[in-house]
Design a binder for these strands. Sequence first.
DNA 1: TGAAAAATATAGCCATTGCTATATTTATTG
DNA 2: CAATAAATATAGCAATGGCTATATTTTTCA
Lengths: 144, 144
Amino acid sequence: MSNTNIKPKDQADRFARAREMQSLALLEDYVEMIGDLIAELGEARVADIASRMGVAQPTATKAISRLKREGLATSRPYRGIFLTDEGAELADKVRARHRTVVEVLIMVGVPEPIAEMDAEGIEHHVSEKTLKAFEKFLRDSQKQ
Amino acid sequence: MSNTNIKPKDQADRFARAREMQSLALLEDYVEMIGDLIAELGEARVADIASRMGVAQPTATKAISRLKREGLATSRPYRGIFLTDEGAELADKVRARHRTVVEVLIMVGVPEPIAEMDAEGIEHHVSEKTLKAFEKFLRDSQKQ
DNA sequence: TGAAAAATATAGCCATTGCTATATTTATTG
DNA sequence: CAATAAATATAGCAATGGCTATATTTTTCA
């Protein structure tokens, strides 16, 4: 047998949704990174963002343009990048979700460094409902 | 605090790795789909692949070109698509991993339809080691 | 303060993954 | 068996997200 006999249309929708979530992943990563840098260093510079994201500086600049276009960040030429209220909110959400995903993976038996690695990709595909289930799972595990 | 105090270089590597896994995701999805269609209908036609993937037909054709280039599939013009040994092997691996991810999500308390949805994106970021941990988790859960 | 260094922006390239429109081939059927 | 229908291929466009090379601005410091 192939899979759980899903209707072709539903499956197409599922793929479309995964593609959509993936297109948000980059925004989420940058916003979280900018939030981290501001928390650590007081501001987020393009050079730091680029080096921590593991991309060339112009790649980071371009991504930041997209963040600005989407209303998540602001900046003036040759200056640091800052988050809008919406951006900061997203950063917090993403950071919390990341931690939850890592904790769940660890709880399930994934070695911590591996959990950190895999969470980086997984987190962007964890829906609100799955996140809620993860949180409950962790709470229930806490009390033995 | 921001995160678990990871070194910038390690973090960059982590992002680079997530990007790389993402670039394999599309190949994995198509290969699995082609495998499913062959199992169900005896052959995989471009039109069926496209409609089940939720993309336009030329998009599927282009993806198939990449599969062929990567040695995962074969085809002759205006004919069905077939998997190479390597492609079939990958399809099996992907299908099994998908099931495992869904089962783990369900075990953790995610409602089944949501588990199916989210697994579509998550699966591509589950490393070998995490997969092994998932399998052990499921085995251990089986026997209460 | 003015020259050198560092940071940022910009230009322009490439590959990928979508799309629509249209040409071509194959299959169907009157 | 020829006309039509269906499937596939191809051309070409747009947005993303990488890159290098280079121009511009800001910062540093001798």
